[in-house]
Each structure stands twice: as C-alpha cells, then as structure tokens.
C-alpha cells in the first residue's frame, strides 16, 4: 500500500489512479483501496455477528430496563428486585458453585485422561480417544435423559449398585445437595472429554527434548509434570478453563432435563432461572435481567485469564 492509501501501480491495471485523473470517480478509488476491499470481504461476517450477537445483546439490555408489560422504562428496578430476592441470591451462589466445581473437576479429570492417553502407544491411542470423546459428541439433552433414568428414584441403576454393597438408596434428584451433585456429575461427564482433547493436543506440543533435559537435570516424573508440563500447558489450560467457564455458567439443557431447577429452586442456574422467570412466568424483562447477571462475572474472569495468556505468550512463544 502506498502512503496515500492507493494501491501500488503494480497491483493495478490502470496507472491512472495515482493522481486525480479524469474518468476515475472518487467512489471507484475508494472501492479500489485495499482496506475497503478487506472491509467488504468481512462485511458478511460483521453482519452475522451484528445480527446474532450485538443486536440480541443490546435488545436484552434494553429489555431488562422495562416493566413486566414492557410499557414503561423502569431503569435498574428489575436488577434491584432480583438482588433483593433470596432465591436469586441463592441462584448466584449456586451458579458460581456449579460452574467452579464442574470446571475444576473437568479440568482435573481431563488432564488425567489426557496424560493416560498420551502415554498409550500411538497405535492403540485412537480407539481410546474415540471412546473417551463419546460423552462430548452425544447431544446433552439426550444423554442427560439417560442420566435421569439412572438417577430415577424407583429404577435407579446407580442405587441398585449402591444397594448391592449394602448401602441405602440415595434420593438423587429429590434433595438439594444430592441434586446439585447429580447436576455437576452429569456436566463433568459431558465436559471432561473436551478438556481431555485440548490437553492432549497441548501435551503433544511440548518438545520431547525438554523432558530429556529435565531428566538429565535430575527431575523425577512428578517434578517433570510440575516444572515442565504444567507451565508449558498453562496457556491452553487457561483458555480451556475460560471457555468452559463461559459454557458451564450458561448451562441450560442438563439442569432443564435432569431437575428442572428443583427441588425448590436449589439447582437453578442463571440460564434455567432466566427461562423460568422470562418465559414460564411471562416476565421477559426480568428474565433478561437474570441472564445479564452473568456478564460482569464472566467479564472479570475473562479479563484476568486473557491477561495472563497474553503475558505468557509474549514471554514464551
């Protein structure tokens, strides 16, 4: 690109664009600029993002400031009412507990699985990788239905196994804490393979010679994991955790199928509660306010995680 923003003569068939030659309109010149072409080529994507992300987000913010009948703007009233509600405060706590616990367990189990897989010879690795990915590729609404049967009070296969060992049946979906554990279990079962596959890719990208150097430096296998593997994977771990945190916070289908928020709202998350308030109770503005509560929490998490990623990328890559 020349300093004046016009394309270089070599790129153009007409040398006339250099100056203000007659016959070349300013519109034509604008269209020939590289930046204009780049903009035009990305325009479809910009429109899609604007239509499917920016517009709904802006609309949700606007909606959350309306009254129930959507006839008057009541400012932050919906948010204040929500914060005043004991149920909603419990849901904030629940969502955070659910997301943090589930993401932590997914990260842990995913890391363990990835490590196991990484140490299997390449030949056998593919079939194990395929099998371990199954939970992640089944639509969660369907697989959760399967889990729902396993947690069913009358026919629970899990309880049957527990009974075999002489322990009493557990009311999985009937009491708050067991229901929370059940929801987290299903979410971990569904999400751990994603962590596994991300970590596996990261593990494969750590140069073998670093392990060899560490072995010669005197590191045990635990020390190699602690001082080489984990720091080398830190960026992938951070990004996967952030991504999973967003998806887990916004989880809807598992809770909806398994407990529908019950018993007594003790398994509701932001998304399921937003649906209950907005759609089932027909209070769209307040439902919008519920879902918008996720935004600041995730924004803070994203800021800190991405800041770390950027810093490490600058130092290492």
């Amino acid at each position: 690109m020349a300093p004046d923003g016009t394309a270089r003569p070599a790129l153009s068939t007409r040398p006339a664009i250099k100056g203000r030659s007659p016959g070349v309109s300013s519109l034509e010149r604008l269209a020939r600029r590289r930046s204009s072409i780049a903009f035009l080529m990305t325009l479809p994507l910009i429109l899609v993002i604007a239509g499917l992300v920016a517009y709904p987000a802006a609309w949700a913010i606007y909606l959350s400031t309306l009254n129930r009948r959507m006839t008057a703007n009541i400012g932050f009233e919906n948010y204040l009412i929500l914060l005043d509600s004991e149920t909603f405060r419990m849901i904030i706590w629940q969502s955070c507990f659910f997301a943090l616990t589930a993401v932590f367990l997914k990260a842990l189990i995913g890391f363990w699985l990835a490590h196991m897989l990484h140490n299997i010879p390449t030949k056998g690795q593919r079939k194990w990788r395929g099998m371990l990915l199954i939970p992640w590729v089944i639509p969660p609404a369907l697989s959760t239905l399967g889990w729902w049967w396993m947690f069913d009070p009358s026919y629970s296969s899990i309880n049957w196994i527990i009974n075999v060992f002489g322990f009493p049946s557990i009311p999985w979906l009937g009491t708050p804490w067991w229901a929370r554990i059940a929801v987290i279990t299903v979410n971990v079962w569904y999400g751990a393979p994603f962590f596994m596959i991300m970590y596996l890719a990261a593990l494969k990208s750590v140069p073998e010679q670093l392990y060899e150097a560490a072995a010669i430096d005197g590191a045990t296998s635990w020390q190699r994991l602690r001082f080489i593997t984990l720091p080398m994977m830190q960026n992938i771990i951070s990004i996967t955790v952030l991504f999973s945190l967003i998806v887990t916070f916004a989880n809807y289908d598992i809770v909806r199928v398994l407990t529908n928020g019950g018993p007594r709202d003790t398994t509701h998350l932001f998304a399921t509660y937003a649906f209950q308030v907005g759609i089932l109770s027909a209070n769209l503005p307040r439902g919008a306010a519920v879902s918008l509560f996720m935004l600041p929490i995730l924004a803070v998490a994203a800021y800190f995680i991405l800041r770390g990623v950027t810093r490490r990328t600058k130092e290492i890559a």
């Binding site: 010679q209 150097a213 001082f227």
Partner: peptide, 21 residues
C-alpha cells in the same frame, strides 16, 4: 541407572532451554 543419577550433563542440538524459565 536413570539419567538423573548418572551425574552427567548434556547440551542438546536445539538447546532444550525451558522457555518459561
């Protein structure tokens, strides 16, 4: 005897420096 107990030091072709340290 594993490498760590052989009391040797090695310099690799691509140095194998730990990039995060």
């Amino acid at each position: 005897i594993p490498p760590r107990d052989r009391d040797i030091a090695m310099v690799f072709q691509n140095y194998a420096l730990y990039p995060h340290m």
